[in-house]
Structures are given as C-alpha cells and as structure tokens.
Simulated scan of single mutants.
Amino acid sequence: MSTDNDLLLAQQGDHAAYDRLLRPLLPELHAHCYRMLAASHDADDALQDALVKVWRRLGDFEGRSTLRTWLYTVVTRSCIDLARARGRRAMPIDLGPSSARAVVDDAPSTEISWLGPYVGEAPHGATSPAARYEQREAVELAFVAALQHLPGNQRAALLLFDVLGFSAEEIATMMDTTTPAVNSTLQRARATVTRSVPDRSQQATARAIGDRQLGSIVERFTMALESRDTDALIQLVTEDVTWAMPPMPHWYAGLGAVGDFAAQVPMGNCGSWRTLPTSVNAQPAVACYLRPDRAPAHGAWAITVLTLRETRVSAITSFLGVQHFTALGLPTELPPIGQ
C-alpha cells in the first residue's frame, strides 16, 4: 500500500495505517529527541507527547510541506517545551575542576539533571549532502554534551540544519521565525559546538583503526578491569585521559589522577568484576558487573563508554545505574566465573 493511501486512511482514523506511516521514521525521530534532550527517558517522553499530537492533528495536515518536515516540526516543538521545563543536562566536567586524588566516599548527586547514555540504534549515514554531521556522529557523547550548552532554539536549528539537512527556509517555517534569524542562530550555535567537539568524530576514528583494533582496545580495557591491573589500564589511555561517573559529581583528568582513582576505587578492594561488550552513543562500551565480597552474583554497576583518540582511550564515562542495563536489554546479574 502506498504512503499516500496510508496517509489518507490514517487521517480518517485508521490506526494500522498510522502505524505503517510512522514506523519507518520512529528511530530517527527518537534519535532527534535524544540529541535535543540528552536523556533517553526524556526522549521517550517527548516522542510520545509528539505522537499523540500528530494523531490528533493529522487530519489538519494539508501537504504544504512533506510529511517528514511536518513530523519534525511537531517533535522539535515538543522537545523545546520539555527542555524548557526540565532544564539542560550536565556532565561532571560541567560542575567544576577535576579531582587530583580519588574521592573514595563519593556519593551520587540527585539534585543535578545528568546527561544520560543513548541506548538506541542511531540511523547510519548522512541525511543529505548538505548535512555537516552523520547521524551517528550526532549521538556521540561529546556532541550531545556540547549541545546542552545551547538554548533550545539554537539546539533545534543546528540539529535540523547540520544533522537532518533541512534548509534555513524550512526551519524558519518549522520554528515560526525568519530565515535571517535562523542563519544568525546557526552561526552562534556552531561557534559554541565547534569549541567543544573534537576535530575527528568517533565514527571517523573507528573507521581509521578498523574493527579488529577497536575490538582489541575494548578487550584490553575489560582485561585490565577484571584483573584489577591499573598499570595495564594506564598503558591504554592518553596522557590527558578523563574519567567521569555520573551521577557521581567528582571526575578525574590526567594519568596521575585517573591512575589514583582506578587503583583505589574500581581496582581496589571493592570486589571482582565481569564485563560484557556493548555499544552506547554509537561508541564502544563495556557493561560492568561488580560482585562485592561474599555476594552471590555480579550485579549491574555501570555502562562504561570509551572515547578514543587514534588507538588510545581519551575519555572513560561510566554511567552508573541498573536502569541503563535494562534499557540495553542486558542482564542485571551475571554468575561468578565458573558457575
């Protein structure tokens, strides 16, 4: 059945046609919501709110734009409203200077809205020749964190233009403003993001080093953690490596601080580790399971995302919480090795 027929049927209240019409676009719409809001559960809420509005207003769609453009208009406005209500999301690096020594009694901060991992599968490739960023590049941690320093309208304009390939004229209509205003907004947004995002994306880095070497880096990281070998970890990272663990507010930068933290906390006397490889934010990641002394099993502890610079790890971001494992479809417990 054609898209035009499904659109007509959906406008007449046919739920099956509505599902057929929207289902192919849901992954990219959800990724857009995550880029705007920097938390998967916020993206779920915004997309659900937008889909309810789309269903109610579909009969008013007159075809003056493409259906995709109209959908992005509704979704983007829902995201801007939610971003305004919930505020921007932060990483530990946004809160203050790094800690020179391990903070062994660090406690989670529940007063801060933390940036969360993206557990969905971001669409591949660029949306148009005019797009500056591939869709997978635009869910990488550094890019999403940089977006959170933009007001909602700047965030939306940059994503709609540089990631999704809409024209300035289309964006002006979508955001109820003028084309010159969109161009000015884009200029300011790009200046902010360019200062924060590395020159080479993680997608480009992965292509340059190849799957085999990428897998080797992940394996070396997991072996260092499971064997609690701080020296092996230090050999794997850059001199300016950082390690952050939201919702813990402290973070560490440089070989000395990261090595001290690793030796005293994850590789200290906290228990034994098991790991599973995964992918988060279109980057290599490791699901880390901790078994404290005398515990019957390894429990979900953190999803650790690795950011690479060439063949070394330049940033380690451990998202603590069992909810991230559930969202990824990973088990929340693993038995001890040999059982």
Score class of each variant (00 low, 15 high):
Ile93Asn: 02
Ile217Met: 04
Pro24Ile: 08
Val197Ala: 10
Met267Pro: 01
Ala102Phe: 07
Gln235Asp: 15
Ala10Thr: 05
Ala282Trp: 04
Trp70Ser: 08
Ala224Leu: 11
Ala102Lys: 09
Asp42Lys: 07
Gly256Trp: 08
Arg312Ala: 13
Cys33Pro: 06
Asp240Met: 10
Lys53His: 01
Gln323Glu: 14
Asp105Pro: 02
Leu21Val: 10
Thr110Pro: 00
Ile234Met: 15
Met174Ile: 13
Pro108Gln: 07
Gln148Thr: 02
Glu121Ala: 14
Ser78Pro: 01
Ala282Cys: 05
Val163Asp: 00
Trp243Gly: 03
Leu71Ala: 07
Leu306Ala: 08
Arg88Ile: 10
Asp94Arg: 07
His41Ser: 14
Gly116Phe: 06
Ala100Ile: 11
Ile337Tyr: 04
Arg23Tyr: 01
Val52Asp: 09
Thr66Arg: 03
Trp55Ile: 00
Thr332Leu: 10
Ile303Ala: 11
Ala83Trp: 04
His15Arg: 15
Thr76Lys: 05
Trp251Met: 06
Asp49Ala: 15
Leu8Asn: 09
Glu226Gln: 14
Val322Met: 11
Glu310Tyr: 04
Ala38Ile: 06
Ala156Val: 05
Arg35Ile: 01
Gly215His: 12
Phe166Val: 01
Asp94Glu: 12
Thr311Val: 12
Ser128Thr: 15
Ala126Met: 12
Pro296Val: 13
Ser167Trp: 00
Pro129Tyr: 11
Gln203Asp: 04
Arg23Phe: 04
Ser109Glu: 14
Arg309Phe: 09
Thr66Trp: 02
Val75Ile: 14
Ala126Gln: 11
